[in-house]
Amino acid sequence: MEPLIITDHYEIDYRHSYAQDSPFFVGLTEGKLMGSRCTACGYTFATPRAHCMQCGAPTAWLELPLNGRVHTFTTCHYGGEAFLKETPFTLVLVEFDGANTLFLSRLKGISGDAVRVGLPVRAHFTKTPSMKVTDVWFEPA
């Protein structure tokens, strides 16, 4: 017998708390890029975390510069289903002076072919926040 195949729909809304990461997302609505710095060893995170990955001590919030450089990049011509309609889009990891780690974001305002490691970029913020990390993106500085 041929196997019987049906379609089974599944959908859910999660209640998601940003918890200790919340100040970062509120910062985006104020045009600020918030990182964090370890209160014990000074290690500085461009993607914030409440406790230091190196030594475990608490970190303090820190406003990052809005200008950085492309550390690496890719242009996605396909993607997960949620992002397919946005293709092609360019992803970058951004490095900042004074930070030990990087920040993942979209790069807009430039063709994917023209992006290079080291390209100076600047953060831009949406005027209509959705309280997601995509409320910030980068463009060539």
């Binding site: 996605c76 993607g79 997960g80 992803l91 490691v117 995509t134």
Partner: peptide
């Protein structure tokens, strides 16, 4: 899912950035 997935969650993109570097 706070910082990476919403930007364009796609593993091929992540590995592509790694090999670009």
């Amino acid at each position: 899912t706070n910082f990476d997935f919403p930007v364009g969650g796609f593993y091929s993109g992540y590995y592509a950035m790694m090999v670009q570097r």
